[in-house]
């Protein structure tokens, strides 16, 4: 018997493997179609915005305040306002969320209090943003007397994003093997030393990704800022967190539904700018994640 024949008898497909082969092909095709269906609306949205809005995107549109009852001019104050809102809400939510996540994952004892807190976090993450808006009005605008201001709006956004930041921080920390912590404790390192030198360096990519994704979510929200700090029309730039500001999401709502005679391209162009901002954040987050992942050490 020649060598070729032996190989043929040993490795040729049996009916069984052929069947599983074709099942595999079908499964793969369906998964591929699902992915394509997912991408379809994404490209449709981007296509729509670009075709309808691109013509309005000029230097003037990006760098000037709206004029003539928002039917002319640009969206510069709204861009700056959105940056203020996400900046301040990030400054509040990120440290608190990350610290709470560290506490819950690394220190909190396994008991019913901790379980209740974890349950609360999961449920808070599902609360609709309009409910957060009402809470923000009650707690920050009225009770704390912060008025309608960037501070009130940002705090409302922070409250909205906190549960998810906490949850994603916990998840990132939990992905670091317990064995590393044990090895470190055994060597006489304290809990905090272990967190700082072992756990955080190996989970920072996941933590930051979670934070940035929430930032871009906050950038797109309208309800939580509408009654707490975002202005309908305010051609000046805010000077401090006590001022109100315009915001892209709010402005988009305004020019699409609230004022007459807006050029048709304006809402699309505003949406395009907002989307670009959010996508930039997300790409930044993906880039950061890839960079930090590559440095991961196990």
């Amino acid at each position: 018997m020649s060598r070729g024949e032996t190989e043929h008898t040993d490795f040729s497909a049996t009916p069984m493997t052929e069947a599983s082969h074709s099942r595999q092909k079908i499964a793969r095709a369906f998964l591929g179609i699902a992915t394509a269906l997912l991408l379809l609306p994404l490209f449709a949205i981007i296509g729509l915005l670009v075709t309808h809005g691109m013509s309005a995107i000029t230097a003037e549109f990006l760098l000037e305040a709206p004029t003539a009852g928002m039917t002319a001019g640009g969206i510069y104050p709204a861009i700056i306002g959105t940056l203020w809102l996400i900046g301040v809400s990030l400054a509040v939510a990120a440290p608190i969320g990350i610290m709470a996540g560290i506490y819950l994952n690394e220190y909190a004892p396994e008991n019913w209090v901790t379980r209740m807190i974890n349950l609360a976090i999961v449920n808070l993450a599902g609360v609709p943003s309009i409910v957060h808006a009402l809470f923000g009005v009650g707690a920050f605008v009225l009770f704390l007397g912060l008025g309608t201001s960037i501070l009130s709006a940002s705090l409302t956004l922070a409250v909205m994003t906190l549960p998810v930041i906490i949850a994603s921080t916990k998840e990132a920390l939990a992905s670091v093997p317990v064995a590393f912590r044990h090895a470190s404790w055994t060597l006489g390192a304290s809990r905090w030393q272990t967190i700082w030198h072992i756990v955080l360096p190996n989970s920072v990519s996941g933590i930051l990704t979670g934070v940035i994704l929430q930032v871009s979510r906050a950038a797109g929200e309208t309800a939580p800022i509408m009654f707490t700090g975002a202005a309908f029309y305010l051609p000046f730039l805010p000077q401090s967190v006590q001022d109100q500001c315009m915001a892209l999401s709010m402005h988009l709502f305004t020019v699409s539904t609230q004022v007459p005679n807006v050029p048709e391209a304006f809402p699309y162009a505003t949406a395009l700018v907002l989307l670009t901002l959010v996508v930039t954040f997300n790409f930044f987050s993906i880039g950061l994640r890839t960079y930090l992942r590559a440095r991961r050490k196990w």
Binding site: A179, F180, A183, S184, W185, L187, G188, K297
Partner: peptide
């Protein structure tokens, strides 16, 4: 307790190299 642990070297059955 950390000072105590520093006086006692421990070697586990399955080695865990720290990620460094």
């Amino acid at each position: 307790v950390n000072a105590l642990r520093r006086r006692i070297g421990m070697v586990f059955p399955l080695p865990v190299g720290l990620p460094m």
